[in-house]
Design a protein around this nucleic acid. Structure first.
Lengths: 132, 132, 132, 132
DNA sequence: GTGGTCTAGACCACC
DNA sequence: GTGGTCTAGACCACG
């Protein structure tokens, strides 16, 4: 369970946390029932304001991915994995549609766009694991 | 020369203006040398504060897309079209790479991603009007 | 008597006119008693708003360089040359002092500044007459 | 970190701020990584509107001299010093060239100009304090 | 608390 | 009329 945040990359820190937890759940790194670090621990570990962690956990609870177990900590929900996988799918799908749409609306022709896509794809497949 | 803004869609108004002007220049709707509506006119037309328009124009001047002609108005620069086209190209390219990368890193396999892309493409090509 | 203005170079057009007339008088291109083009003619000739020419002539009259001869036109004053020469001298002196002062205050050392000066001097002496 | 502005000296306040920050960075008064006063503090300190300070900071961010750290404040960029030093150098160089050129074009002879320069230089070196 | 954005309205120089 | 600058005060997201 190792999260990493990049401050000032435009994406709010709490949002980065949310995404990474979802990712970990979708990948099976975090399994249902498992306790995740407390708000305080996580905040210390990431050198981040506890309020920020709290906010991320809260959002994840609202999406039924985490549940707070009174006085025991915060755990991954039972149905979490399914939600996270679907979530990820939908997120990518939405963003892809948005980019493609903007490109087409901007007058980029189909072929050039497809070429761009294939280039990005190759690039991502090659340098697969340098996520920073 | 008809711009439209959507308030409260997350993107600052001045940024929406910047993009739309760039788009219009890239498309040849605005041609080099042409005067664009004055700050006040544009503000009135869009029901927006003049300062907001001013800010957009200022940014476009910094990017050598517009130039202010003392007391005559604001005109499109000579080299503007080239800049805008390149700009748009790069923007789409970056965003596409980012989405693809995130998808791959999230474990989405190549084929499903390609399918998503083709679906988005078809959808955008068919329904030309902005889906908001 | 050939003036040239550059719009949008930061210096107001009327100020450019004032300077060029003074320059012409200092150089003897315009001599005391000589009539200069009317406001309308000058405006047409330079493709400039008549108000702008008027403003320049007015300022020059206030500095006793031009005088309006009722219904005959506008002429160069008797003492104009002396004034213009002194004026030019003072202007250069002031601007030079200001630049030097700012440079020194900015921490530039004496020798580097002198080197800069000599370089500018050489450059101006060589390419002496391309004033535009 | 003590800035001072003079209202109504022709140079916009935000521009004065930009210059003074650049100067401070070039001199090492502000070092990379250091947080500068918040927009609100600076505005209060200078008895100026926060928007005006904001504008100056924004311009400095565009020039890669400052960077905004989300909710922490505004800090000096790593490469800022180099940029500021080069900036200052170029600025002085340009203005000096412009004055010298105008002087030569006005018919001032080389020796008199050199004498003026030396005089300005001596004057600035003696009276080290800002003559307002 | 921070910076980012926006509105409303003012004054100025220039043409 | 134009653009450029400034003030005053508001709201928001973020930490």
């Amino acid at each position: 369970m190792q999260l990493s945040i990049e401050p000032n990359n435009g994406i709010p820190i709490y949002e980065q946390l949310v995404r990474q937890v979802k990712y970990a759940v979708a990948e099976g790194i975090l399994v249902p029932g498992q306790l995740i670090p407390s708000v305080r621990d996580m905040a210390r570990q990431l050198a981040v304001n506890p309020n920020t962690v709290q906010r991320a956990y809260l959002q994840l609870q609202n999406e039924d991915i985490l549940q707070s177990l009174r006085s025991r900590g915060v755990a991954v929900c039972e149905g979490a994995k399914k939600i996270c996988v679907a979530d990820r799918h939908q997120l990518v799908s939405e963003r892809l549609a948005s980019v493609v749409d903007e490109a087409i609306r901007s007058g980029l022709d189909e072929e050039r766009l497809r070429a761009m896509f294939e280039k990005s794809l190759k690039s991502s497949l090659r340098g697969g694991d340098k996520p920073s």
